[in-house]
C-alpha cells in the first residue's frame, strides 16, 4: 500500500485537487488550449504521438500546450492532470499510470515532462531530466513538434534499452515481460460524470512554490475545460 501524503510536509493529491478540482478531466492526446499550433504542427505532433504509441503500446503520451491555470505550478499541474485526465482519443483503454504528460507553457517559459508509476518503474529521475533537456533548444525556438520528436526519440531509446535488459537480465525484472500487450484495463478514470471546476482555490502553502512572475491568469483553467469539452464534442458528437 502506498502512502497517502508526504510524511515530511503532508503534501498529497488532495492539495492539488483543492486547487484544480477533484473531478476527472476530459482530455485529448494533444491539448492546444491557446491555439498556438498551426494545423501542420498539430498534425506533426499527433504523428509523433502515434509513432510512440506504436513502439510502446503499453504507454500513451499526452501533450498540454498553453498557459497554465492559476495559481499554477507546472509540476503540480502536471501531477494533478495526469491523475485526473480522461483521455478520449486513445485506441485502447489504458490506465493513467501508463501515461506520459508533456506540459508546455510558452508564456511562462516552462516545460514539464511527467510520467505515471509505470514509467517511473522503468527509468530514473536523471534520465527523465536528460530527456527533457535534450529538447530545450527546440522549446526556445518554439518548435514544439521538433521538441516532441526529440523527446519521444530519447524516451524511445531509453525504453528500448529497458526492454532489452529485461530480456537479458531477467533477475533485474522479476516480473518479466508480458507475452502480449496488456489490454482490457478497466477505465479507471473514465467512469462517472466528468466535470471541471469553474474556479480555482488558493494554492496551498505546502505545494512547491513557483516565482510570482511565472503565474498565469486565473482564467486558464476554465479555458482548458471549455476548450477540451468543445474539442471532445467536435470529435465525438454523440458523447457529452
Amino acid at each position: 500500500m502506498g502512502v497517502s501524503s508526504c510524511p515530511h510536509c503532508g503534501y498529497s493529491l488532495q492539495v492539488a485537487c483543492g486547487l484544480y478540482g477533484s473531478e476527472a478531466v476530459v482530455a485529448e492526446r494533444l491539448m492546444d488550449v491557446d491555439g498556438t499550433l498551426v494545423p501542420e504542427q498539430r498534425q506533426a505532433i499527433l504523428d509523433s504521438l502515434d509513432d510512440f504509441g506504436r513502439l510502446f503500446p503499453q504507454l500513451f503520451f499526452l501533450v498540454y500546450l498553453g498557459a497554465l491555470p492559476p495559481p499554477a505550478s507546472p509540476r503540480q499541474f502536471a501531477f494533478w492532470l495526469l491523475n485526473h485526465a480522461a483521455v478520449t482519443d486513445l485506441d485502447g483503454l489504458q490506465p493513467n499510470e501508463r501515461g506520459l504528460l508533456l506540459v508546455v507553457d510558452p508564456r511562462g517559459g516552462t516545460a514539464v515532462l511527467a510520467g505515471g508509476y509505470f514509467l517511473e518503474s522503468l527509468m530514473g529521475q536523471e534520465e527523465l531530466d536528460l530527456v527533457l533537456k535534450s529538447a530545450a533548444k527546440d522549446f526556445s525556438r518554439a518548435d514544439y513538434p521538433a521538441a516532441l520528436r526529440i523527446i519521444t526519440a530519447a524516451l524511445g531509446g531509453l525504453l528500448k534499452r529497458v526492454a532489452r535488459e529485461a530480456l537479458w537480465t531477467p533477475r533485474r525484472w522479476p516480473s518479466g515481460l508480458p507475452e502480449t500487450v496488456p489490454a482490457g484495463f478497466p477505465p479507471l478514470v473514465r467512469t462517472g460524470e466528468v466535470s471541471l471546476p469553474e474556479s480555482m482555490p488558493e494554492a496551498s502553502p505546502l505545494e512547491p512554490e513557483r516565482p510570482p512572475e511565472e503565474m498565469v491568469p486565473s482564467s486558464a483553467a476554465g479555458r482548458l475545460g471549455r476548450r477540451t469539452r468543445s474539442a471532445v464534442r467536435r470529435a465525438n458528437p454523440g458523447r457529452r
Binding site: S4, C6, L13, N83, L113, G116, Y117
Partner: peptide, 12 residues
C-alpha cells in the same frame, strides 16, 4: 501522495 496514477515523477 494519495495519487492513483502518478506520484509526481516529472522533470522541469
Amino acid at each position: 501522495f494519495g495519487a492513483p496514477h502518478s506520484g509526481g515523477f516529472s522533470a522541469v
